[in-house]
Design a protein around this nucleic acid. Structure first.
Lengths: 346, 346
DNA sequence: CTGTTAGCGCCTTCAA
DNA sequence: TTGAAGGCGCTAACAG
């Protein structure tokens, strides 16, 4: 094991003080640029690397951001993380990533770990069933900034980044109505999560705007799993008047609805037009291809980290930011195109 | 900002030495259990949290493992990471995760970051086009253990965890042969990556074992992307004698082959039986459902971290481990079932 | 079983 | 523009 090079080694060789080396390496303005150059050169030559822990210990900051997401294995989340990683890296921050697996208790445990690891800031997308905010109180108390994204918590002390879920829900529903649907089922997730309650609100206002009667029995709150999709279709099949469209708040569940509809002999979109949400890769594999909402995952991750870092640098206060709303887009595919008749049939 | 509680605070209150507090908190065997209890109680009462940096600085270890994967957004990788995370957490290790996005240069950058972050160990699955090993030399020099998984590098100083890709390739190919195929196309990835070269070897030995003639023109080395799938099928369609089966080394590409085959009017599996690799969720969405190889992702992640930690604890030497080979399984679905006639037709 | 002592490597006053 | 000095919080000898 080779010995690690320290600023003392460099100082000794160059006959200067460690303080000067430290300052030069950190690009301190009050250091002669020639001195800087010679120090940088010697550092490179010796293969010096800064000791993060000593630095952290001294500065009482970690240059690390904690990230808690419901799950890593969704295309949306990996896009978010990719965006986060690139911005964080460029700014010299590390990411400590963990997944709550949609469970509040795991989310609590993760928050504790982040707290103990003394992350400089915390980025969170809430688990499916999280109720309380108390596992984040520690951070607020210690003044560690929290930024929620996608599945957010409305809290004065925290910033938030979301898409306009209500608008998206409105767009999907309007599109279905334009295709001739006037009895649209809505399969949603836990309504205490903003993303689902807002999509639902968009659904309702679209109905209203287009003069379509709202029927409560057409709305099902589920966990948006595959099974939930099957169950929803079973419920649909039992209805006395069949819906002619269905808007599912998430693609994975939507796919399972499509499968089940087909299995039961319904034609998509002729009998029932289908639309999902998220633009998951499966949306382009299922037949017919699924109409859905494109989610700017990568950009959301980038903005989240950028906002956090700006705040940490004192450039922007979190209060100023509070909530950023991003745009998303409707992607129309065959599963909802009743009017053009261009459906693939195999 | 509240002041952080230190072991000195606890020591002062309890009229004992900081060293005792430190030892008690780390569950040192040579501390009276009553003392431990009272210290633990006081620590909890004061909301004490250990300062990782001071500890790291002193112990010259980080309790952090670096992970470099080609990409986060594959179901296989997220399973691996889930397994890694749970084992690491339980053992008190953190994970520093980054993705190379299949590019050697990003892999190099990631390795450098890991090196500067002084991870205690490095877990790597290689990018698609990585040639050199030199970006890992630093670790070897500094005696930081490296463990490759899935896409591995054959290197004396490093351990490796893989599935038996050759066996799996053999199983898939044999299955196709048993279904009556005797002209099987093989779409593979970069043959310098073990996973692909071994699957290819399995393909060849299965042909040989069953007395099926090997035809080099049936093998295409690609990047296994969606486009590659389309191209492969274009090539297939141009052949004078059509294949009756096709084995693609990855599900994402296989799906695109299926789509293209259907588009061109081939019936699956009647005209051409199709098999993929990985058991990606899309395999159960595409029609007909895709025959594939199940990959024990979660278990692989668990074993990788377990092996690494055992090594770091000195329980097991890396040399002893060297290469772990895990089992995988053939999953037969409609896309390859020529004999039973149970294909879904919609 | 517990205490004393001496740093780990860095950064930041303060002084020059 | 640079140097000297002290301490961030913890742990590992060493000594009882």
């Amino acid at each position: 094991m080779e010995k690690e090079v320290t600023i003392y080694d460099i100082a000794k060789i160059l006959h200067i003080s460690p303080a000067t080396v430290s300052r030069a390496l950190n690009d301190h303005p009050a250091i002669n640029s020639k001195t800087k150059l010679s120090i940088a050169a010697k550092a490179a030559e010796l293969g010096y690397r800064s000791n993060t822990f000593a630095s952290n210990l001294r500065r009482k900051s970690t240059s690390t951001l904690g990230v808690i997401v419901p799950r890593l294995d969704s295309s949306f989340m990996s896009a978010v993380l990719a965006g986060m990683e690139s911005v964080a890296n460029r700014a010299g921050y590390n990411l400590l990533i963990s997944q709550s697996l949609e469970s509040e208790s795991k989310e609590r445990a993760n928050a504790r770990t982040m707290y103990n690891s003394r992350v400089d800031g915390l980025l969170v997308s809430l688990a499916y069933d999280t109720d309380g905010f108390d596992h984040f109180e520690n951070f607020v108390k210690k003044n560690v900034p929290i930024l929620f994204f996608d599945r957010i918590f409305d809290h004065d002390a925290c910033a938030a980044i979301v898409i306009d879920n209500e608008q998206a829900g409105y767009d999907v529903t309007s599109h279905l109505i334009m295709q001739g649907c006037n009895r649209i089922m809505h399969v949603t997730g836990n309504l205490k999560r903003n993303v689902y309650s807002e999509r639902y609100r968009g659904y309702r206002s679209a109905l209203e705007a287009h003069g379509v009667l709202f029927d409560e029995s057409l709305v099902t709150e589920t966990d948006l799993s595959r099974e939930a999709g099957k169950d929803a279709i079973a419920k649909l099949a039992d209805m006395s008047i069949l819906p002619d469209g269905i808007f599912i708040a998430n693609d994975v569940c939507a796919i399972s609805c499509v499968k089940e509809l087909k299995q039961r002999g319904y034609r998509i979109p002729e009998d029932i037009a289908v639309a999902g949400f998220n633009n998951d890769p499966v949306a382009e594999v299922v037949e017919p291809n699924l109409t859905t909402i494109y989610y700017p995952g990568r950009e959301m991750g980038e903005i989240a980290v950028k906002t956090m870092i700006d705040h940490l640098n004192g450039t922007v206060s979190m209060d100023t930011v509070n909530t950023v709303i991003m745009k998303s887009d409707l992607i129309v595919r065959d599963s909802s195109l009743k009017l053009t008749g261009k459906y693939q049939v195999n």
